[in-house]
Structures are given as structure tokens and as C-alpha cells.
């Protein structure tokens, strides 16, 4: 896919490029390419902003935040709970820049909707990142073991992966959500991660299968390097790119999965909340109080979109020639 821009033909391009970039290390190249990906950079900034906003505003784990209202306290409805946030300047006929008492409005029993949305964002982010971390860890271990050892170990692990893959993701997540939904976001995230690793496991296995045939691994084996050392020192570093990209995208998918589960009533249970649950709770309010519907949706999209763009940037950075295929 780079032919148009860079490579005039198999004859010239390798040297033309090879000579100009030999001076850079792998890490520098990755960083350089990532920061050149403008959408990924924007995604990084937006995600950082959302995370900081969600956790600093209403506080987390007993640490108070700078926002004075809680997501649990009800209050008197002000102006039917309409949002007080205004971003349209006065000379354009708006109310000028103003945050106001309830920037995102209030829900039907007077809870500050900004606080509620922030709480939802916290929970969704926690679940998504936990799923990403756990699924990546398990998937990498299983995939690496299956890919390196082959034989009976591989057969067993891959059949296990097959079994897990046969069950549609949403379905197994729904069962887990139903079982674990009321134990809090952390437990839910951990357990979802434990069932969502197979895709990543297959990916890592594929990488291992091709890498273990490479000359440098043969060489390491020939001089009697232990399996452990070959896996961790020789093969794994070469799969880092693939794993990081897949992990990033799995976080983005987990955000959407969690919200879908909560929407179906199978995720985070009341009185705690998540973005998906907020949308589900207020879906009938779309006509009368649309802000109850818009804000959590907006945050889900912001989070998922920025993570997806970061993932795309990472993919470009780690392997600019890899086709951007999403299955």
C-alpha cells in the first residue's frame, strides 16, 4: 500500500529508503510515525482529556474531586433539568460561554447529570481497560505457548480457543455480565477479560508460528538457548507491535461491549452506573429530555473513536506496510 507514495519499484525503493532511515532506531521510527498520524495524536489528546475529566471531577475511591455535586444526591429540578452549559458566544446569538449550575442538566429526580455521566465514564473506562489488560495477558500467554511448543500443547490450547470462539462474544459476555454485573465494575472487567482473549490468542499464535521458523530463532536454538529465553528474549519482542495494536483495539471494542451489555441490563447494575446503562435508563426520554440521552452517547463515541484512532496510529507506526484490515 505504500507503492504510490514511496516505492518506485522493487529495484529502487529499498535502497533509497534504507539509506535514509538506517540512522534511526526502531523505537524512534515508531514514535516518529505515530506522531505523524494526526488522527492518532488527536485521539490521544481527547482520550487523555476524557480520562482526566472523568476521574478528577467527581473524585475516585474516596478522593474528592473538584466538582461539588455527587452522582448520588438528588436535588430540586432547575428549569426542568435542562443543561446550563453554553458554548455559543453572545455575538452569534448564544448565551456566551457559561458552565452554570448543571452543565449537562439533571435527570428526572434531580441528580446532577454531569456527575452521573462522569461516574458512568469512570466505570466504562475501568471495565474497558481491565478487559483489555486481562484479555491481552491471557491471549498472549496462550498464543505464545501454543505457537512455540506446538504438538499436544498447541492442539489442546487451540481447541480451547476454538471452543471459546464458537460462542459469540456478546453471548458469553452477556452470561458473564449477568453473573458478575452486581459485583462492581472491577470484578466484571476481570471476568469479561477472562472470556474475551481468544481472538488475541489466535493472533499471537500466528505471529509465533511464523517467527519460530525465522533464522534468528533457529540460530538461538542451535546454540542451546532455553525455550523460556527464546520465547521472552527472541520472539516476544518481535510480536510487541502486533500485540499492542490488538490490545488497543480490544479496549475500544470492550467500551462498546460493556455499554451494550449495560444497555441490555446485563452489565453494571444500579445504583452504580455506566454509560450504556444511562442510555438504557433514559432511552424513552429521547423526546422530552434528549440531553439525558446525548451526553453518555457522546462520551462513548469519544472514548471508542479516540482509542480506535490511537490503535490505527500504532498499527501504522509499528508496521507501515501492514494492511489495515479489521475483521
Amino acid at each position: 500500500m505504500t507503492l504510490n507514495a514511496q516505492a518506485p519499484g522493487p529495484d529502487t525503493a529499498p535502497d533509497a529508503q534504507g539509506l535514509t532511515i538506517t540512522a534511526r532506531t526502531q523505537g524512534q521510527m515508531v514514535r516518529r510515525r505515530f506522531f505523524r498520524h494526526r488522527a492518532a495524536l488527536a485521539g490521544m489528546i481527547i482520550l487523555g482529556f476524557v480520562v482526566v475529566l472523568a476521574f478528577s471531577s467527581i473524585g475516585f475511591a474516596g478522593i474528592p474531586g473538584w466538582w461539588d455535586k455527587s452522582y448520588l444526591d438528588t436535588g430540586a429540578l432547575v428549569n426542568q433539568g435542562k443543561p446550563t452549559l453554553s458554548l455559543v458566544p453572545e455575538f452569534l446569538g448564544g448565551d456566551g460561554f457559561r458552565i452554570g449550575e448543571h452543565p449537562f442538566g439533571q435527570d428526572d429526580i434531580g441528580i446532577d447529570y454531569f456527575a452521573l455521566t462522569m461516574r458512568g465514564a469512570q466505570q466504562s473506562l475501568i471495565i474497558a481497560f481491565l478487559v483489555g489488560i486481562v484479555a491481552t495477558a491471557v491471549g498472549t500467554v496462550v498464543g505464545a505457548a501454543a505457537g512455540y511448543f506446538r504438538g499436544a500443547a498447541e492442539a489442546t490450547l487451540m481447541r480451547l480457543t476454538d471452543v471459546m470462539i464458537t460462542i459469540p462474544v456478546l453471548i458469553i459476555a452477556a452470561v458473564i455480565g449477568r453473573m458478575m454485573g452486581d459485583s462492581g465494575a472491577v470484578v466484571l472487567g476481570l471476568f469479561l477479560g477472562l472470556v474475551l482473549w481468544p481472538t488475541l490468542g489466535r493472533l499471537v499464535r500466528g505471529e509465533f508460528l511464523s517467527l519460530r521458523e525465522k533464522e534468528f530463532v533457529e540460530a538461538a536454538r542451535a546454540v542451546g538457548t532455553s525455550a523460556k529465553r527464546i520465547i521472552f528474549r527472541h520472539i516476544l519482542p518481535n510480536t510487541v507491535g502486533v500485540i499492542i495494536v490488538a490490545a488497543t483495539l480490544s479496549v475500544a471494542n470492550a467500551v462498546l461491549l460493556e455499554s451494550a451489555l449495560s444497555f441490555l441490563g446485563l452489565g453494571v447494575q444500579a445504583p452504580d452506573t455506566s454509560l450504556g446503562q444511562l442510555i438504557s435508563r433514559y432511552r424513552s426520554a429521547m423526546v422530552t429530555r434528549p440531553w439525558l440521552f446525548w451526553w453518555p452517547g457522546l462520551f462513548i463515541i469519544l472514548i471508542a473513536l479516540s482509542i480506535n484512532f490511537i490503535g490505527d496510529g500504532l498499527r501504522d507506526a509499528f508496521d507501515p506496510r501492514q494492511t489495515r484490515v479489521r475483521a
Binding site: L3, N4, P8, G9, D11, T12, P14, D15
Partner: peptide
């Protein structure tokens, strides 16, 4: 050698170079 332009020049004769050339 590779990179000496021998292939590119003949692809130019064939009109097979990418549009960006």
C-alpha cells in the same frame, strides 16, 4: 546495482510507473 534506476527507466518506457511519479 539495485537503485541505479535501470528498472525505473524501463518502467517509464512502458508507462507503468505509479501516478505519483
Amino acid at each position: 546495482e539495485s537503485g541505479s534506476g535501470k528498472s525505473v527507466s524501463s518502467l517509464a518506457v512502458m508507462g507503468l510507473l505509479p501516478r505519483s511519479a
